[in-house]
Structures are given as C-alpha cells and as structure tokens.
C-alpha cells in the first residue's frame, strides 16, 4: 500500500515539473513579499527592539513564514471541488485506497516540488540579500521539523474540511476566502502573536491557525523552551485529531448524499 502512495506522490511531483519555467516568477514573487515585510519591520523597529524582538529576528521570522506558507496544503479545497463538480469523485471512491490519503499524498508531491524548486531557492536568495540565522541546538531542528509536519497536517485537514462543507454550500471560493482571512490574522504569518494584545492573543491561542506559521517560526528561532514546545506539539496533535474526526463525520454524510443522488 505504501508503494501506491509513493507512486501518487511521484506522479504529482512530476506533474509540477511541466510548469517549471514559472518557478522563477514564483521565487520573484516570494522574495518581493519578504522584502516588503522586512521593509515594514525596518521602518517600525529601526535599530531598536520591541518585546526583545529586533530587525534580525523579524527577517528570520518573515522568511520562515513565507517558506511555511508555500508548503501549506489548504488549497486542496479546489482539487476536491473540481472532482465534486465533474463527478470524477466517484471513480476515486472505487479505488482501494482511502480518498483523503490519496489526496494527501497527491498534495505531498506538490509540496515536495515547492520545497525543492521554490522554498530552497527563495531561502538561498533571501539569505544572500538579507542575511538569515540558523538554529544551533539540534533539538530545535527536530522540534521544527515536527512543527512543520503538524502545519502540513492541519492545513490539509482544514482545506479538506472546507471542501466537504462546500459540498453543501456549492461555493468553494467564498469559504476559501474566509479561511484565508482567518489564516492571515491568526497564523501570525505577518504580525507575530508576540505583538497581539492579551485578548487577541487569547483568541489566537484558541484557534488552530497559529500552527500554520507562528509556531514553526517561533520554534525555529528558539523563542520557545522545551516545555512550551512539548505543550504546542500536544495541542497541535489534538487539533489534528479534532479536524480529522470532523472530516470523517462530514465525509460519511457527503457519501450518503452522493449515494442517494446516485452520483
């Protein structure tokens, strides 16, 4: 079975290579965004610091967030949407593979491609231009990798969940906008949660979006101690479980509806 998933991921990866000429444009776009953010932070922080955060820290923070956002899988919403509209979903249901896992490994192929051809070059170029600090502690790296996996899983489940919800509302893009809005604010990808006031920080802590940007970056930068990291990993795992249960519930409902409608 593992071999089948591996094949799906490879297929998705090579599907991306058809668009490799556009990779440069994407890298340019990412560098621009990082550059804008750094310019803002430079204007705000100058040579000083706020809450112990200086401009060097914010450069690293912006770059990590730009990179993580390229790996997120919430765009899976459009893949499911297309298949629901065209009815192709039926053929996927007949395969002896779990549908969400099939989607996940397909998306993973995209992510691997993004990492190799967009994230790594972006980081390299940004490192040349802006400078960039690397973590020193080995356990930080391990924790960072785990936090990335949590980000992948949560973004995937969120996208998949919204796709299933859109099965009833029949409009994916509006729901995607709303989720994107929540991610913009509460993932901390632009404004780190350190700078949130107490009540906004409370809301952000109650939501799963911080795992899509703020948490990996904070871990990478060594801004969390071991107990905080453990707590975050536990919290992330609980979120994965909750979202997974929610998708299972919606999925079985959607299937019932599909069967009733006869496809």
């Amino acid at each position: 079975m593992m071999r089948a998933y591996y094949a799906i991921t490879c297929k998705a990866f090579f599907r991306n290579t058809a668009y490799r000429s556009e990779v440069w444009l994407r890298i340019f776009g990412n560098i621009s965004i990082v550059f804008i953010q750094i310019s803002i932070w430079r204007a705000l922080l100058g040579t000083g610091s706020l809450n112990g955060i200086n401009i060097e820290a914010m450069i690293t923070y912006s770059l990590i967030n730009a990179s993580v956002s390229m790996m997120l899988m919430n765009k899976v919403i459009y893949v499911v949407d297309d298949k629901l509209k065209t009815g192709n979903i039926i053929s996927d249901l007949l395969k002896p593979i779990s549908y969400p896992l099939l989607l996940f490994y397909d998306e993973l192929g995209n992510v691997v491609f993004q990492i190799m051809f967009t994230v790594v070059p972006t980081i390299f170029i940004a490192w040349l231009i802006f400078g960039f600090s690397f973590p020193t502690e080995p356990y930080t790296i391990v924790a960072f990798v785990i936090s990335l996996l949590i980000a992948l899983a949560i973004s995937f489940l969120l996208g998949y969940l919204i796709a299933l919800v859109s099965f009833w509302f029949l409009t994916t893009f509006a729901l995607d906008w709303m989720v994107a809005a929540l991610i913009t604010v509460f993932s901390g990808s632009f404004l780190p949660l350190w700078f949130f006031s107490a009540e906004w920080r409370f809301i952000a802590d109650m939501l799963p979006f911080q795992f899509l940007g703020f948490v990996p970056a904070a871990i990478y930068m060594g801004k969390m101690d071991a107990s905080e990291i453990l707590w975050m990993i536990m919290k992330g795992s609980v979120w994965i479980l909750i979202l997974w249960l929610a998708t299972q519930l919606l999925w079985s409902r959607a299937i019932k509806r599909l069967v009733v409608q006869g496809g």
């Binding site: 705000l44 729901l175 632009f190 404004l191 700078f195």
Partner: peptide, 29 residues
Amino acid sequence: RGAFIIGAVGQITGYAANYLVIWLLLQNF
C-alpha cells in the same frame, strides 16, 4: 443569489482581516 451573497461575505471577511492585521500592528507601534 445565494452564491453571490456568500461570495460577498467571503470577500468582506478577507479584506476585514487585512485591515485587522494592520490595526493590530499599529497597536504596538
């Protein structure tokens, strides 16, 4: 009509989020 209204709500939420982030930022600075 339904899709149109949901779409409008989605867009307004999206932009509201952008305004909110800038507002939060300027609470600090």
